[in-house]
Amino acid sequence: MRRYKRTLAAAVLATTMAGGTVGWASGSAQRAVTGPPVGSAAWRADGSLGRALPDPATASPAQVSRFFASLTPRQRQKLLRDHPLVVGNLDGAPVALRYEANSLAVRAEHDPRYDRLAEPGRQILAFDPRGRGQAAEVYGDLTGTRHVSVVVPGSDIDAANFDRTHDPYGTPAGMAASLRAATGGRTAVVAWTGYTTPLGVGPDAAGGDLAEAGAARLARFTQGLAAAGAEKPVLFCHSYGSVVCGLAAHAVNASDIVVLGSPGMRAADVADLRTDARVWAAKDRSDWISKVPNVELMGLGHGQDPTARDFGARRVPAEEARGHTGYFAPGSDSLRAFAAIARGETRGDVR
């Protein structure tokens, strides 16, 4: 009974501490945004090409890719103008077409929260205004490089703040830009905020519902990258994002999965992830996530610490990282290691 009480207390503590970038704020229950993009009904009803359009809810990224390959440039432009939110979020559609579609979709929102996303030159690969908003931005030439990485963020991130200027290395955009710079521009990096993240701390951050919804979206996103001609990516999964990556590991199209500041991956060990990808883990001593008990009880908590020796992940040094959002800070050992992994230059652990 005493052991049970200690475990239960640990689970309750996980509820109050597990989270993402802020760590010590009140949580607010979130409903996951899932399903096909806004405008899908009008898209399915569109008979202007004299043929059925691929159903965003059921067509695979490979089927979407083949459909667009069969169109003339004029037909592609027509669909883009008529259905920008659908074209911009169709995994498997041509990357350049998605950039153009999302530029139109962001400007059409007339929402000051998204003014920065509408700036010229930004490569927005996905944009969904539902809920708190979701977005993905590409740094570099996604289909013209040998190395691709995807940053999967933790709590408190959405389309309006995924590139905020304060605490830049705690945002997917800041992480992506720092990683690309550390590789000497030899990689393309996607800042992916493609799921509903928890807000602050609370049951959402300690539970797995949002992560399960995000895992399905992440798996499809990586399949879409392959269908569009991009290389198999390395996933960099921060905090609650590592829970998403853990649940998606068996289905994602990825060469490596790197978790940092992780509260757990909802797996007992690497074998439990059922993935062929190499799995890496980093955690610095000053990261408050170290205080989160690695338990999973009654749906709360995320299980084993991925940096534990018996978990079986490859080690990433993080002695020079500071806090929960310092892993991508320029000059840190963790960023140097991440850059080596992103460039495909590693064997075994990195130093």
Score class of each variant (00 low, 15 high):
82 D>T: 11
83 H>C: 05
84 P>K: 10
86 V>W: 05
87 V>H: 01
88 G>P: 00
89 N>W: 00
89 N>V: 00
90 L>C: 02
92 G>K: 09
93 A>P: 01
95 V>I: 14
96 A>D: 15
97 L>Q: 04
99 Y>V: 01
99 Y>L: 09
100 E>Q: 15
102 N>K: 04
103 S>G: 15
104 L>I: 12
104 L>G: 02
106 V>Y: 03
106 V>M: 06
106 V>F: 06
106 V>S: 03
108 A>N: 11
109 E>S: 14
109 E>C: 08
109 E>V: 03
111 D>I: 02
113 R>V: 10
113 R>K: 15
114 Y>V: 09
117 L>W: 07
119 E>K: 13
122 R>F: 14
125 L>H: 10
127 F>T: 12
128 D>S: 03
129 P>K: 11
129 P>V: 06
129 P>H: 08
130 R>S: 07
130 R>M: 05
130 R>W: 05
130 R>V: 00
131 G>R: 01
132 R>M: 13
132 R>E: 13
133 G>H: 01
136 A>S: 12
136 A>G: 13
139 Y>H: 10
140 G>P: 11
141 D>Y: 04
142 L>Y: 13
142 L>H: 10
142 L>G: 05
144 G>S: 15
145 T>F: 10
146 R>T: 12
147 H>F: 02
147 H>Q: 11
147 H>V: 00
148 V>P: 11
148 V>Y: 05
150 V>R: 01
150 V>C: 05
152 V>C: 09
153 P>M: 01
156 D>A: 01
158 D>W: 07
159 A>Q: 12
159 A>L: 08
160 A>M: 08
160 A>I: 05
160 A>V: 05
162 F>W: 03
162 F>D: 00
163 D>I: 01
163 D>R: 09
163 D>T: 04
163 D>N: 06
165 T>G: 15
167 D>A: 14
167 D>C: 02
168 P>L: 13
169 Y>S: 11
169 Y>V: 10
170 G>S: 12
171 T>D: 06
171 T>A: 12
173 A>L: 14
173 A>K: 13
174 G>N: 13
176 A>G: 13
176 A>K: 13
176 A>S: 15
177 A>H: 12
180 R>Q: 15
182 A>L: 08
183 T>D: 11
183 T>K: 08
183 T>M: 10
184 G>S: 08
185 G>P: 08
186 R>T: 04
186 R>K: 15
189 V>P: 10
190 V>T: 13
190 V>G: 10
191 A>H: 00
192 W>Y: 13
194 G>D: 05
194 G>R: 07
194 G>P: 02
196 T>C: 06
196 T>P: 02
196 T>E: 04
197 T>C: 05
198 P>Y: 12
198 P>D: 02
200 G>F: 08
200 G>L: 14
201 V>C: 08
203 P>V: 02
205 A>N: 05
205 A>K: 04
206 A>D: 00
208 G>E: 09
208 G>S: 14
209 D>G: 07
209 D>T: 12
210 L>Q: 01
211 A>I: 00
211 A>W: 02
213 A>Y: 08
213 A>D: 12
214 G>T: 08
214 G>W: 07
214 G>Q: 08
215 A>N: 08
215 A>P: 00
215 A>C: 01
217 R>P: 01
